[in-house]
Structures are given as structure tokens and as C-alpha cells.
């Protein structure tokens, strides 16, 4: 009996030495913290939602709205073979969200409403309750989704361009046919697993979303290549009166100009703790 006891004790000691005493460096436990304070994910969501508003308005007005004026088509079935059309603004957001979902950061982006065209996009549960609050207050709503362990923020999706209201009002499946400019049509929902992130991760999130916008627009340009009468892609915009589309770079450059210094100002206003200053002399 005592032999077994000795054997077991020696085995456990050996295991403890193997695992802890003479152990190699441990595997990283999540991302390394690089010093400085953490930023609330709500601040990052605010930045992302603002940038999303800008790109959606740009796409809706300058591509969809102006594009229809020069003969370009946009459709729910834009991906179908033989359909020479681009994505509608809601589908542009879905393309961006799809690109974001394929990146390493677990950022979620969704769009819904309490009066959607497709009933599958109807808010319910926690989102339904939050959207009711949003209708009353006009403000973003935030909550923590327990089952998915995701920090969630919903931002108003306002009818910011005429094509938004005219298209939704004309759609046969729309439950509401008198949408007006400036009206709350729905909400974007953003989700992330962390409550706080270091500045490096905040910047990575912004970069991820901007890449998503670029990929969404590129998906449209890739479809355009197969059009029977493909518009010219380059420097020009449909608003200049001819069937032309800006290239991805030109589209994103315009987006960055319209976002302006808002994102930069927000990031610079954050209290990031001690920051090492570069010694200019050496």
C-alpha cells in the first residue's frame, strides 16, 4: 500500500515539475496588453456607427440615387446571374458585414427594423425592446446579450437620402408606404465580445470596418464587369451625368474626406494614460 502511495506521490511531483517548475514560456493568454488605458467598446461603436452612416449615405446618394439617374440598376436579386444590377444600400451593408465577419476580430454588424420589408429582419426580444426605447428617445441603445456574451449597441438608421424613402415606399412588401426623409427607419446593431479594448484593437476595428466598406463596394464593381453595357469605372461619378462609377480607391477617398477628422478627433480626445514621447534629439 505504501509503495502505491509513494508511486502516486512521485508521479504527481513529476507532473507538477513538468507543468510548472521547469516549464517553457506559457502560451499567450489572449492579446498582450501594451500599456495605456483601455477604451470602452461603446466609444469604438460610436466611431464605427458614425463611419457607417457616412458610407451608407454616400453609397445611397452618389451611387444608387445618382446611378439610377444615368440608367444603372440596383436590385435585391443583384447577385443572380443575368441580373445587371448592383446591391441596394441595405445589401451593401450586408456585404460589408460579411467581409467584417471573415476577419479575425469578432465584430458583428446587422441591420433590422420594426417595419422591415422582409419579415425575417423584424426586431424581437432584446432588440425589439431596445428599438422601442430608441423610437421614444432617438438615442442609441446598449445592452449585453447573455446567451452570446456579446456587448451590443444599436444605432438609429435614419432615412438620410431620398432613394431610401422612395424605394421603401414603393416596395410591394413594405408594411409602411409613407416613409419621410429624416425618419427613423430601423437600426444598425453592432456586437463585440469585449467591454473594453486597447487603442491598438480600437484602430484594428476601425480598419476592419473600412476594409469591409471597400470589399462591399468592390463586390459591386466585380459584378459590373459582367454587365452587358458596363459603366466605365475610374475617376468619375454618376452625378456627373454619364454611366460611370468611381473605382474602389476613388470611392474610399471620398468616404474618408466626408468622414473628415471626426474619427481622429474622437481618438485624440481619449485619455490613453501615459504615452512615451519620442525624443527628437535622439
Amino acid at each position: 500500500m505504501s509503495r502505491w502511495y509513494t508511486l502516486t506521490t512521485l508521479s504527481l511531483i513529476t507532473l507538477a515539475i513538468y507543468l510548472f517548475v521547469s516549464a517553457p514560456p506559457p502560451l499567450p493568454d489572449g492579446e498582450a496588453k501594451r500599456g495605456g488605458r483601455l477604451i470602452s467598446i461603446d466609444v469604438v461603436f460610436n466611431v464605427l456607427a458614425k463611419e457607417n452612416d457616412v458610407v451608407r449615405a454616400l453609397y445611397t446618394k452618389e451611387i444608387v440615387g445618382a446611378g439610377k439617374g444615368v440608367g444603372l440598376a440596383f436590385s435585391e436579386s443583384w447577385r443572380d446571374e443575368g441580373v445587371d444590377a448592383g446591391p441596394l444600400p441595405a445589401l451593401f451593408l450586408r456585404e460589408a458585414a460579411s467581409s467584417v465577419s471573415r476577419r479575425p476580430l469578432s465584430l458583428g454588424l446587422f441591420l433590422g427594423s420594426d417595419k422591415p420589408i422582409a419579415s425575417a429582419n423584424l426586431f424581437k426580444g432584446a432588440q425589439g425592446r431596445a428599438f422601442e426605447q430608441m423610437r421614444e428617445t432617438g438615442h442609441a441603445q446598449r445592452f449585453y446579450a447573455e446567451d452570446t456574451k456579446l456587448h451590443t449597441a444599436m444605432y438609429p438608421d435614419i432615412a438620410s437620402a431620398q432613394p431610401c424613402v422612395s424605394c421603401h415606399n414603393a416596395h410591394p412588401e413594405s408594411p409602411k408606404s409613407d416613409w419621410a426623409l429624416g425618419e427613423l427607419m430601423g437600426a444598425t446593431t453592432w456586437t463585440y465580445p469585449k467591454a473594453e479594448v486597447p487603442i491598438s484593437e480600437a484602430l484594428a476595428l476601425i480598419r476592419t470596418v473600412r476594409m469591409g466598406f471597400g470589399d462591399a463596394y468592390q463586390a459591386y464593381l466585380d459584378k459590373v464587369k459582367g454587365f452587358k453595357d458596363a459603366p466605365k469605372v475610374g475617376e468619375r461619378w454618376p452625378s456627373e451625368g454619364e454611366p460611370a462609377l468611381p473605382s474602389r480607391a476613388v470611392f474610399l477617398e471620398r468616404f474618408e474626406r466626408e468622414v473628415g477628422i471626426g474619427t481622429l478627433r474622437t481618438l485624440l480626445s481619449l485619455d490613453l494614460g501615459e504615452v512615451a514621447l519620442v525624443d527628437e534629439e535622439g
Partner: peptide
Amino acid sequence: RSGDVHAPHLFNEPRFADARA
């Protein structure tokens, strides 16, 4: 699967709690 209308990530949205369960 570009253009996946039922992409798995879509079901992370809070309103699909019942479907997830």
C-alpha cells in the same frame, strides 16, 4: 461563399436567440 444569404455569422444577432437555442 460570397453572397451567402444564410451566412452563419448572421445568427449572432440577438434576435435569433430562439434559433440558436
